Simulated assay, not measured.
Amino acid sequence: MASVAVDLKQIENAEKQKQLSLLLVDDDVELCGMMREFFTQEGHHLDCAYNGRDGLSAALNGIYDLVILDVMLPVVDGFELLQRLRKRKDLPIIMLTARVQQQDRIRGLDSGADDYLPKPFDPDELLARVRAVLRRSESLTRAESEDIVIGNICVNPTTREVWLDGELVELTATEFDLLEMLMRAAGRVVSRDEITAALFEREATPYDRFLDVHISHLRKKLEGGRGLIRTVRGVGYVFTGAA
């Protein structure tokens, strides 16, 4: 147990020491200035764009670890920007929204966001969310590298590719991590709490549709009428691999 604690400590230290390059797209100039100062003090680099058109150009042409994207933007709104970006580049994306309606958050997830954070927010929580999203993208790749093959689905943890009947399937980073977790536990019910804690590093809530949206996406992309992922009401999900 002691060696595990040391390993976790080393991972945390390395994570804090790594400089991240981030893009914040938000028309609130004051907020952008505050966030730039905060992330600079934490040892990271943050660029800002103040409308959707400039944000899309910066995201496509720059080299960033993650994009933080406001929903309500001039010229091109956050939802449209997200959809355009997802078609051309695979970047982790966290959406910010001042809207309280859950359907707005679900719409962001439907468009491919990896996480969302309501405004107003604590900068420390935003940084924690950034690290959690990036950790999800990297940790499973560092884990087991052998292909996971169940039925006609093959998952390659090293290249983070998913193949269905020999055809490559495009998944977002969150969809990939969720599928890999379920396939590694195939035949066992994985609770919503377990998934939320492992992938999103927060507690599940009864009204959180985050997981439901991503499960729905996986079913549409992989099942084709087959019941590969079964919902166990009130508990979680199980990958059955049913033909």
Rank of each mutant, 00 (worst) to 15 (best):
A14H: 13
R188E: 12
D147M: 07
K119Y: 02
D124K: 09
E138P: 00
V100Q: 02
E42A: 06
G33V: 15
A59I: 01
F121L: 03
E161H: 03
D110E: 08
F39Q: 11
G225M: 14
T97N: 00
Y207F: 14
A185K: 06
R160K: 15
L69W: 03
D90F: 08
Y116V: 01
S137D: 12
L140A: 10
V4S: 02
T240Q: 03
K87P: 12
A49F: 14
S139Y: 06
A243R: 09
D193W: 00
G241I: 01
V169E: 12
G55S: 04
Y64H: 13
L23F: 12
R226N: 15
I63Y: 11
E37A: 15
I153A: 05
H217F: 10
S191Q: 04
A197S: 09
R184F: 02
D26E: 07
F210E: 14
E15W: 12
G108S: 03
A59C: 03
G225F: 11
I148C: 12
E175Q: 10
R192A: 05
K119V: 00
V67K: 06
D208K: 07
L96I: 00
D124P: 00
G227A: 15
V190K: 09
D77L: 08
H45Q: 13
Y64F: 15
E80F: 04
L218C: 08
V75R: 10
D193Q: 09
V169I: 14
E144N: 14
D7R: 11
S191N: 09
H217M: 12
R142M: 12
A243Y: 07
A143M: 13
A242V: 11
E12S: 14
L211F: 05
Y116L: 06
T196H: 08
H44G: 13
L126I: 08
L85C: 08
R88D: 09
V149W: 00
E201W: 04
A242C: 07
I150W: 01
I195V: 14
L179D: 03
R129H: 02
E201C: 09
V189S: 06
D147R: 08
D147I: 05
N13M: 08
I153N: 04
E80T: 14
A143R: 13
M95N: 02
